[in-house]
Design a protein around this nucleic acid. Structure first.
Lengths: 345, 345
DNA sequence: TATCGATCTGCACAGCTGTGCAAAGATGAA
DNA sequence: TTCATCTTTGCACAGCTGTGCAGATCGATA
């Protein structure tokens, strides 16, 4: 006598119709925007639905309308301040737009991104936002063929039909180089990570190019993943010898904060008097009083609204969505020493 | 001549069956675990599916199986380090268990939690995890009636059929009081927030009760929401007068870090020599060299596996899931001065 | 009153899949 | 060869909803 799996009697539109004494169509129309129902039947239906605890089945609705209402967010390192802020903003914006967010936590490598996009297709998501990692080309075309919108964040490649929102890494990195040159720095550590993410590499290379052009010496260094610990390790490695650099450009605020802490507490350096640090992202912690990090802001809310624009209202066709380039404004705080020249002025 | 909305020809099991020269059932069985298909047809199907870019429609599958594979995570303040860490762990664990996470970003008030749970029912989620906020009782029973599993985090109320995972706030708060008493502190600021969250109130009250029992004086203070800024504001308010406290118990690490920064940089206090601070949560930043905050750890991975246990394998019935109480271990760092008594030993 | 128009309602089909049941095919044994 | 057993396959139904189309109801106007 095996235990019989007794499926709970689910409450569907049919039940509501019977209780309200109307047809099932009337129930459906009551919960469909812009459908034609008389106020009385509408009332009867709503009352019956509330009594039974009826909730429209979005799986079935998505099946017939071919609009699931689901938008997938594909990211890695969700626990990180910047990614968490992006997720916060995106989930909220999606809800305001009547969609719902599915979060796929991937490792960042192409295989896991492809896996995530497959899941995306399984759930017939209307759009997917890839916040980190880079998808193989084949799965991208499959997504587009299935009518899914795709938005990539901080990818340099332009793909036909794929929306792109990018930070102006090059411009900001050039500004950073100029900023440190004006402060009178000469030997500059360039602290990056071994992750090899496109935008991080872009920042590093653009900075080195501009700094070299300005006659500055650069010392690239990568201690590990993009983290506080890696920043601290870089500081200990770079500041140990006799001929130290006199400034550091860190491609990420997390790296910068770790770098600052190690420089101050392990090596006794005074920032900004004896050493200048510039970061990137403007995460919340960069503004904390222990750091007061001068950095470049990733304008989260602007990025979010750009992404929402790319996702669009799902009505228009495959119009070639213009890719957006967002400026990263410098945020002046107190981790860069004031230039002697400016002091005189 | 209006633009005809031409629905893209979707690729479904029927198309795959035709291309592979088999029946649609064979396609379905190929993608169903434990179904009976011969290796040859299976191969033909897989080849045809790959060629067409077929992906099983989980909406339809969920409709017929009554198992959507969706688990909803309801939270507010996703950008916060602790919540972000929880989301990171939960999304990963869910994916490993073959489910997928939907994230509902709510404001925390009962109305928005109810709204989120309604959405949960619309998508026929198998389970919902409420990470913050407190749902009205009526919607809870509706969820249970619809066969949805429900897990509450840090709720004191026991509801029949609802899983609960809680941190031992009281025990940890008592430990904190004893810790500060042993360090020789006498007047202790209790820094909390105006949020009124159950677990924060529990920490505050348990601490005050135990501290009073130990003969310590307590000065409760709430400057605003649970944030770095509120912690800093509390420090400025509490440390301005002449008869300062000599220690602070902050019900959250974010509050503690803000408190420390304001105490040090605005008021010139030395921590831990002249002032001791204890926090709660052990967010990543608490371990940074600028803070070295002594605190109590919310064991994220343990909480995650407890929650996963409550969600269960969805096979068994409404068995009364035992509620779990997780200990918050003290993490000794350097924000509490070493007791003169211990120094002698 | 008869006709027209507007508004609402119900029928029936489509959308995609999983699975029980019966039939067919394959395999082994007598 | 004949029978029995096991595996595989196809049919057809269920699961829940949105919507086009035709019919019904109602009010208003000539």
């Amino acid at each position: 006598m095996t235990a019989v799996v007794r499926r709970k009697p689910t409450v569907n539109a049919q039940k509501v119709a019977e209780k309200a004494g109307v047809s099932r169509s009337a129930v459906s129309r009551t919960f469909t925007d812009g459908a034609s129902v008389s106020p009385e039947t509408r009332d009867k239906v709503l009352r019956a639905a509330a009594a039974l605890g009826y909730h429209v089945n979005h799986l079935a609705r998505g099946l017939i309308r071919n609009e699931s209402g689901i938008v997938c967010l594909i990211a890695s390192g969700i626990g990180t301040p910047l990614q968490a802020a992006m997720l916060d903003g995106l989930t909220l914006a999606l809800q305001d737009a009547g969609r719902i967010a599915m979060v796929l936590n991937c490792a960042g490598d192409p295989v896991s991104v492809e896996h995530a996009l497959r899941m995306t297709l399984n759930y017939r998501a209307e759009a997917s936002v890839i916040l980190s990692g880079s998808p193989p080309a084949s799965i991208v075309t499959t997504c587009l063929d299935n009518g899914q919108r795709l938005v990539l964040l901080n990818r340099s490649e332009q793909i036909e039909g794929v929306g792109t929102v990018s930070i102006d890494n090059e411009g900001a990195a050039r500004d950073a180089a100029a900023m440190l040159a004006r402060a009178g720095c000469r030997r500059i550590a360039v602290v990056s990570s071994t992750a090899g993410t496109a935008s991080l590499v872009a920042r590093e290379e653009a900075f080195i190019r501009e700094a070299t052009k300005l006659g500055l010496e650069t010392l690239p260094h990568r201690a590990g993943p993009t983290s506080y610990a890696s920043g601290a390790a870089s500081a200990r490695a770079l500041l140990a010898g006799a001929d130290r650099p006199d400034a550091a450009f860190c491609v990420t605020d997390l790296l910068a904060l770790g770098f600052m802490d190690a420089a101050r507490h392990d090596l006794g350096l005074r920032i900004p008097e004896a050493f200048s640090v510039v970061g990137f992202d403007d995460i919340e912690q960069a503004g904390w009083a222990s750091y007061e990090l001068t950095t470049f802001r990733q304008p989260v809310s602007e990025l979010v609204s750009c992404i929402m624009g790319q996702i669009g209202s799902s009505t228009e066709g495959v119009g070639p969505v213009p890719s957006r380039l967002v400026k990263a404004e410098p945020i002046w705080r107190r981790s860069v020493r004031v230039s002697p020249a400016l002091k005189d002025a």
